[in-house]
Design a protein around this nucleic acid. Sequence first.
DNA 1: AAATAAAGAAAACAATGATTTTCCAAATTT
DNA 2: AAATTTGGAAAATCATTGTTTTCTTTATTT
Lengths: 217, 217
Amino acid sequence: MMVDSDPVQPRGPGRPPLRSEEETRALIVAAAARAFLDTGYVGTGVDTIARAAGVSTRTLYRLFATKGDLLKKAMEARIDIAFGQLDAARAAGAAGADPRSSLELLLGGYAELVLSDEAVRLTRLIIAERQGVPALVESYRQATVRVADVFDAWIGEQQRTGFLRPGKAEMVAHLLRGTINEAQRQILLGLREPLTADERRDWVAASLAMALDGLAA
Amino acid sequence: MMVDSDPVQPRGPGRPPLRSEEETRALIVAAAARAFLDTGYVGTGVDTIARAAGVSTRTLYRLFATKGDLLKKAMEARIDIAFGQLDAARAAGAAGADPRSSLELLLGGYAELVLSDEAVRLTRLIIAERQGVPALVESYRQATVRVADVFDAWIGEQQRTGFLRPGKAEMVAHLLRGTINEAQRQILLGLREPLTADERRDWVAASLAMALDGLAA
DNA sequence: AAATAAAGAAAACAATGATTTTCCAAATTT
DNA sequence: AAATTTGGAAAATCATTGTTTTCTTTATTT
């Protein structure tokens, strides 16, 4: 069976699509993600999403089976985007020869990934809704594996350059990640206000100084 | 205006209440907490709660203004109960002269408080629902202050007995709390299965050994 | 016994929201 | 122009659920 996936389809009679199905999907997914992160799953009506995406509910339901399906696709897309940014941070970190500043870049990327307003909302949604959509957890898990890889790469780098004693690198990395995760937990619980980008930067620098000076002497 | 709050009311004619208003309230609150923790706020119908409590929705609505009010009262009650258990752990810890085993008791209490199935569900609900019910955050915040007090008491104890160098006690306590909180975060996200009581105990002992031997030498 | 208050059962009400359906106005090809 | 397909607008359907109301039974006191 050969599928006719030619990008330039020889069309028969009838009105051509306004945009490709892919584009429409992307439009809807983006609107849905924004809305879900804003007002939660149950707090968001399907027609609100459709209106925000500039399509009709009919179109939406032609492309997505149910509201739950839409949530799944939307969140997977966001997880991909968010965690993809960390790869950029890794690349930047790998370029710098100075292990301390490479860690600062890496950590900055991670802080952004975990503490940005968007990230916090995403995490909240996953925690709140994962029972209804187990697939979300799988996407998230795979993403965290990617994060672990990035940190492991940095640790391996330290082993080679000898900047930190073996064993210390793991501890520093683990400690710093824990600190950032803890901040996220407090934001999620409302015990602490979300951090602005500036606050994040200052805060990363401070924790870094503390960890390296306090532990790696 | 004088309120007639005599506990033994001279009743007029008419059927007397089956139980005191307080008792009925408690019954409903308990059922509501169980249900909310089980199936979430939106996932739980009011009549489900009423049936579980053995009262009619009419009675429920005579004692609680709205469903949201019920959530607030139910969660506040649970927060009180859960965090109250830590006071017991403190008392037990204070009794033991050995600082290491007192820390183990304290930490065990904290692990129970944060990692038990009940606690995880409670946290999930607060994270998911706090925007709709800001009062929840206030209750939770006050409870965390009580927790901090308990840990501070232990730290102060170390200062006096000289078991740990000044500064080290803070670090050990902070590190261990962080580890437990991180475990909770992973459970909330579905990255890790909830721990049984036995697993919690083993795990507390192991982290304790690591922290004390690794850092407090 | 009569009056009266408590509280359950069940129906009524009203709103919301997911999903489907109907109808219609473009846009394109033959 | 006729046929035909896309997709928007809006109403219809259908289920759920918070909240209120009505009715009734029961346990008291006067």
